[in-house]
Nucleic acid binder design. Structure first.
Lengths: 203, 203
DNA sequence: TTTATTTTGTACAACTATGTATAAAACTTG
DNA sequence: CAAGTTTTATACATAGTTGTACAAAATAAA
């Protein structure tokens, strides 16, 4: 009986994400977003409820496809240090090759909204906390597997990795050279004793 | 002959800085800023020319009093590594004790405006570049003084320090505990071989 | 075809935004 | 007191903002 939804919700979220990523949240009005989505403001409010409602969906979508997504989920089969190194390498590549130099949408939103917008701010702060805890968890696994020495302060190291991650994502907005961006990550990872070259896999 | 300026320009910049720091640039309208400053919009435009004009002045003021200001200016008399360690310690303290958890105004503005607002974006990007170069310069001095080994890659280390700085400033918006924030900085500095305890000076 | 539902178009309300213009008031110095 | 300048008050123009309301159109299934 119901008329089927005639615009692709997922595709709309993707498009809106690109727009907010480029222009920032406060600068992305419902007018502008609706125009970009090719729908009317009526449809916008019908589909997303409010201006802020869309951003929440956009952030969920973003986090599910951001370059650090591989860190979450099941414990990795490959060595943890290789996973970490590869992930930071990937992040540097993606960030540097983004022609808009937009950095990380989540980090941008933290800078814009944390401690201000109660709802979204709290969500973002908790996402940072979760990510840092995940780094620590991975390092604990590395200790268990003998990849890292037993006395390793995985809590401190995990926080340092989270900091490296966010730093890279901000730095990428100002430092556009991929090699230099990777130099930042590699230098810090080496310092932390967490850098590991990829061991010529599949050979 | 001229009527004296009846509102304190410097104090107004300071007040506006606090407001923009708290709410972000895009969310700080001329209306809101004028009200906060206790002046009319007429006076605002008269004094600052435009919305953007004020931010430029605010950023200049901010940079002149931010916790990393001590890194600039004359080469330090004290050991470079001590200066670096103390500066990062100070930054962690200031950021964690800010009840608004606003982080760094400059970093917030980079996240909000870099690659978007041509004028201010370029200014902020160049400020990052300058700061990174200054870190490298300080490390070069440290090498000259024998504080660091001769083969040190001061360029890579300087970039890593700039990244640590910006990371801390973002992280502070989500991680409010001073000890944990300092753990981030200390762990990274130690990893980079740049951490040095303050040598009980004046004793 | 009727029915149930979603989407759309359009209008409205009530603000708010930036920037400009202009005349009146305030004030200090000569 | 007069001159010169700054500040204020007020209005205007033009555009945009979020959110709501409601009827008309589109659509698929019974």
């Amino acid at each position: 009986m119901p008329r089927p939804k005639s615009f692709d919700h997922a595709a709309a979220i993707e498009t809106a994400m690109q727009e907010i990523w480029r222009n920032g949240y406060q600068a992305s009005s419902v007018n502008a977003l609706s125009k970009e989505l090719g729908i009317t403001r009526s449809s916008y409010y019908n589909a997303f409820g409010s201006r802020e409602g869309l951003l929440r969906e956009v952030l969920d979508h973003y986090l599910s496809q951001s370059p650090d997504r591989v860190l979450h989920g099941e414990p990795p089969a490959s060595p943890v240090l290789t996973l970490l190194t590869d992930t930071f390498r990937e992040i540097c590549t993606v960030r540097a090759r983004d022609p808009g130099h937009r950095g990380c949408l989540a980090v941008n939103c933290i800078a814009e909204l944390a401690g201000q917008n109660t709802e979204l701010g709290a969500f973002l702060v908790s996402a940072v906390s979760t990510s840092a805890a995940r780094f620590t968890q991975l390092l604990d696994i590395a200790v268990d597997r003998g990849e890292l020495p037993a006395g390793t302060d995985t809590h401190a190291q995990g926080l340092a990795l989270q900091n490296l991650l966010m730093g890279i994502n901000i730095f990428a907005k100002a430092l556009h050279d991929e090699a230099e961006l990777w130099m930042v990550a590699k230098t810090t990872l080496e310092g932390l004793g967490l850098y590991k070259e990829h061991p010529n896999a599949q050979l």
